[in-house]
């Protein structure tokens, strides 16, 4: 079953888009051999990276002045072979969302955003996605091919792309007047945000730290692990750490992928500050502390020795992982 993938090569996130799609392909019924990837790119510099990490052997490289949805849609819509694809896949990012829906409309197909999984039906495709504010999972039938589908953020585990031999590359250059409504265009690439609120990994210390020294020690450890560092209100109110590091309703509201909470009991005001975390691990000596029933994993013990052992494990693993990743 032929399918296409559309990626935005103008973005620095290209490689993660590709790995996300590749991870999705691995768990779906689609086979790589039947796919073709369309990548929009701005300049020659990106070419090598784009080719190296394209998730299929067959690759269409479309050179454009910049990422501009009107122009991209115009190109893809009018690409001759488009009718042959039954599925068109897009990553979970902003570009993927807007392109999937609009292309679906133009090709008279069906589209769906933030899709978790797909399943073949006799006369269509079954897509699942989260609805009702992530409270329920909905299963939808899409009737009209091409099925333009953008993925759910963090849905499937991304998968590194192996070296693919026998690449077939088709080059296009697209100048269009589709974006003539734009008078000026100024793009500012964002710096990596160091703030606690945007950190992917956060370590938080609670009143169980017991002293300013312990708080400073933990802060140091967090920075070594490349994690954001926060404290609960009692820690800040006791003057062990400055107020800017406070997490909870009167401080920062964090939403990391991984939140490690040490020595905090889990007052409602604090829990509200971390509840959007994807995964919460709590370490506390008190098995009855409220946080122990509001986290994903609870380790019942003194946080100090647990944290020491954990840091060692992470450090060893990290160096292994880096070596492996660069050698791939």
């Amino acid at each position: 079953m032929k399918f296409a993938i559309v990626l935005n090569g103008c973005s620095q996130t290209y490689r993660s888009q590709a790995e996300e799609i590749y991870g999705f392909l691995k768990t779906s019924f689609l086979t790589e051999g039947e796919g073709e990837t369309f990548v929009v790119c701005e300049n020659e510099k990106q070419r090598d990276e784009i080719i190296r990490y394209a998730p299929t052997a067959l690759l269409h490289l479309i050179k454009m002045d910049r990422y501009q949805p009107e122009a991209i849609l115009h190109f893809i819509e009018h690409y001759e072979g488009m009718k042959e694809f039954r599925y068109i896949l897009f990553p979970s990012d902003f570009a993927g969302q807007e392109l999937s829906v609009r292309l679906g409309s133009r090709l008279k197909g069906s589209s769906m955003v933030a899709v978790e999984e797909i399943d073949v039906l006799e006369d269509g495709v079954l897509c699942s996605k989260l609805v009702y504010g992530n409270h329920l999972r909905g299963y939808f039938k899409l009737d009209f091919p091409p099925f333009c589908i953008s993925l759910q953020k963090g849905g499937k585990e991304p998968c590194p792309i192996p070296v693919i031999k026998n690449r077939q590359i088709f080059n296009y250059e697209q100048r269009s007047d589709q974006d003539s409504f734009i008078q000026t265009y100024l793009f500012k690439r964002s710096e990596k945000d160091e703030g606690l609120e945007s950190a992917a990994f956060v370590i938080i210390g609670g009143y169980g730290l017991g002293s300013r020294e312990a708080a400073l020690n933990l802060q140091k450890k967090a920075s070594e692990l490349d994690a954001g560092f926060g404290v609960t209100r009692p820690v800040a109110m006791n003057g062990w750490m400055n107020m800017g590091k406070m997490v909870g309703v009167s401080g920062e509201l964090v939403k990391p992928k991984l939140c490690l909470v040490l020595g905090a009991s889990g007052s409602a005001a604090f829990m509200a500050g971390i509840k959007k975390s994807e995964f919460i691990v709590a370490v506390n000596q008190d098995a009855k502390a409220p946080i122990m029933n509001q986290c994903d994993v609870a380790v019942i013990d003194d946080y100090v020795p647990v944290m020491d052992a954990l840091t060692a494990l992470i450090n060893t693993w990290q160096s292994d992982f880096e070596t492996k990743r660069t050698s791939e």
């Binding site: 909870g248 309703v249 009167s250 509201l253 007052s267 409602a268 005001a269 604090f270 829990m271 509200a272 500050g273 509840k275």
Partner: peptide, 8 residues
């Protein structure tokens, strides 16, 4: 009751 996230 006051939900702490409402207060934030």
């Amino acid at each position: 009751n006051w939900d702490p996230s409402d207060i934030a």
